[in-house]
Every structure is written in structure tokens, then in C-alpha cells.
């Protein structure tokens, strides 16, 4: 019953509230309030993830492991504060996803973004960052189920993909804050001007994934064997 209720609420959000917000943006606000609407949609889109976690009543061990993984990625972001874009956050969210599933991956990514912005300053970019990093963790979780992420080549490809995904997502926000409206032309300009950043994201993801994926996976497995946390 618990599970079904959260599923219903999620479906209502995805199929009714988000289209309604889009409709309101186009009809009521004359297709001009992209900035506001986009932030609303990002917030709405994140709700189902948090809701299902909330309704599931997770055990303390799950909560603690997600908190630890987020704290590690925040510490990592703080360590690499001088190198813009070169951060281990996406990689750690993805690795958590590989080992512990899509939900844990999403939460690790989103909480890392929120917590690290508590240190570096919140802004209108926070919801976007939370969603993008969360999505990387989520996709990582889905791919982790197939078991191919133990190999090097899928890992490299995933790192590049995650860098591009993050850059594309954040550029939607960037375009809208620079031009107020979303135009394809402006988006392409933003994407091309962000190419160096995209490369840095992708390269840092690949490096961190290659270095960290195996040790962290082994450690999580060890914890799992020792205590039987995530079944």
C-alpha cells in the first residue's frame, strides 16, 4: 500500500503536474517565463525520487551509506576546489549507483550537490545541479544492473557520456539565465562555448571512474558481505 501510494503520487506528478506547468508556461505566461518554469519542472521532477525514498522507510544502514558516499564526494569537491570542473562528484554518484542501485545513485548525486552548495553557496543552479548529478547516479544504477560496468571500456564511455549529459543539462540553465528565453540558436552558442568545460567534465569523470570504481565497489561489497546491508 505504501509503495503504491508513492507510485501514484509520482505518476500524478510526472503525467499531470509537469505537463500542466508546461501548459501554464506556454499559455498563461505567453511562453516567456522559461526561467521560472524550468526551475519548477526540475523541482517537480526530483520529487518522485525523494518521495519513494521517504515512503519506503529505509533502514539506518542505507541512510548512513548514502550519507557517507555523499560526504565523500563533497570532501572530494572541496579538495579539488582550485580546478574548475575537475570534480569527482559525478563519478562517485555513478559508482554508488553501480553498486547500490539507481535510487541510491540518484540520492547520492542530489545530496552531494545540495550539501556541497551549503559550503560553497546556494543559487538558482542548485536544483539543476542536484538533478543532473542525481540523474548520472540514476543512470549508473540502471547500467550497474547489467554488470557491464566492471569492464574498462564501458566505464570510459559512461564517463564521457556523463560529462556531456551534465554539460548539456547545465547549459539549459545557463542559456536561460543569459537570454531569459530558451532558443535553440542560443543553446548551441552556449554548448559550443562550454566545450572546454565539457571536455574537463568528461576527462575528470573518466579519470575518477577508472581510479575509484574498482576500489569503492570492492569496499561496498566487503561491507555488504560483512554486514549484509543492501540485499
Amino acid at each position: 500500500m505504501q509503495k503504491r501510494l508513492s507510485l501514484i503520487i509520482s505518476l500524478v506528478i510526472i503525467f499531470i503536474f509537469i505537463p500542466l506547468t508546461l501548459y501554464a508556461g506556454i499559455v498563461l505566461f505567453n511562453d516567456r517565463k522559461y526561467y521560472f518554469i524550468s526551475i519548477m519542472i526540475i523541482i517537480l521532477a526530483s520529487i518522485p525520487f525523494f518521495l519513494s525514498f521517504e515512503r519506503r522507510k529505509p533502514q539506518p544502514r542505507e541512510i548512513l551509506i548514502i550519507a557517507v558516499m555523499s560526504a565523500i564526494s563533497v570532501t572530494g569537491r572541496a579538495l579539488f576546489v582550485i580546478t574548475p570542473g575537475f570534480k569527482p562528484v559525478a563519478a562517485i554518484a555513478a559508482i554508488t549507483g553501480f553498486s547500490l542501485g539507481a535510487e541510491a545513485g540518484f540520492l547520492t548525486g542530489a545530496i552531494s550537490a545540495l550539501v556541497s552548495n551549503m559550503f560553497f553557496g546556494q543559487g538558482p543552479w542548485t536544483p539543476f545541479q542536484m538533478f543532473m548529478w542525481g540523474m548520472i547516479g540514476f543512470i549508473g544504477g540502471l547500467l550497474g544492473r547489467t554488470g557491464i560496468m566492471h569492464k574498462k571500456i564501458p566505464l570510459i564511455l559512461f564517463g564521457i557520456f556523463a560529462g556531456i549529459l551534465f554539460s548539456f543539462g547545465m547549459d539549459i540553465w545557463g542559456t536561460m539565465s543569459l537570454y531569459g528565453v530558451f532558443s535553440m540558436e542560443a543553446y548551441i552558442v552556449a554548448l559550443t562555448s562550454a566545450v572546454p568545460f565539457t571536455i574537463v567534465y568528461a576527462v575528470s569523470n573518466v579519470i575518477f571512474l577508472l581510479i575509484l570504481a574498482r576500489p569503492i565497489r570492492e569496499k561496498l561489497e566487503r561491507i555488504n558481505n560483512k554486514y549484509g546491508t543492501f540485499q
Binding site: S70, A71, L114, V115
Partner: peptide
Amino acid sequence: VFSLTLSISLRLVPRFQ
């Protein structure tokens, strides 16, 4: 639950450092 996770994570950062 979410805010508990958040506050544990927030507390762990200085501890890890």
C-alpha cells in the same frame, strides 16, 4: 528521512577532513 540523510552527510564532511 531526507533531512536526516542530509544532516548526517553535512556533519561527516568536516569529520572526513
